[in-house]
Nucleic acid binder design. Structure first.
Lengths: 83, 83
DNA sequence: CTTTATTTGTCCGTATGTATG
DNA sequence: ACATACATACGGACAAATAAA
């Protein structure tokens, strides 16, 4: 089971973990990150899972298709110079 | 493809379209309105199509014959006085 | 009679949206 | 943060009835 630190919102800590998995490629583009999967893995309420997903969506790391799921966004064209 | 508005159930919007076709005579009495036809035309799930049909049936605009289909109801005897 | 196609009936599962306590 | 409930929506599968070939 995941160990939460006190004094920091759980949804932030969950978002941190997922963010890392996205940025490291553990979760490739289009990978489904459902609320239920977060509920089960982290032992949290769906309410909390939704907050984590919302945060990542607002960061652009996830996009949500209503009634279908939330998925890892395609890589953004960052760093223009590097060729 | 049909354009759905957000903030309103799809099954309601589909029902609206069919209702208009019935009331305008585009779909005459006994015209078949099958779930599959709605699925294909509107690009929705059958689940959603069934909800639209159910709504129109409850309004009396359609009647369903099990395993045969849902058909446009005969015109209702409105306006009593007119003879 | 058999086969094929069509259509509704029913059930399961997954997932988000929304609201309440 | 949690728990619960319901609505909305999609996908798939199978059964049963009907009609037509």
């Amino acid at each position: 089971m995941f160990e939460f630190e006190p004094d920091r919102p759980r949804w932030q800590q969950v978002a941190d973990v997922i963010r890392e998995r996205i940025q490291s490629g553990t979760y490739p583009p289009k990978h489904l990150v459902s609320e239920l999967s977060l509920v089960q893995e982290f032992g949290i309420a769906r309410d909390t899972a939704r907050k984590a997903v919302r945060a990542l969506r607002e960061e652009g790391l996830l996009y949500t298709v209503p009634h279908m799921g939330s998925f890892v966004s395609p890589p953004s064209e960052a760093q223009p110079a590097a060729e």
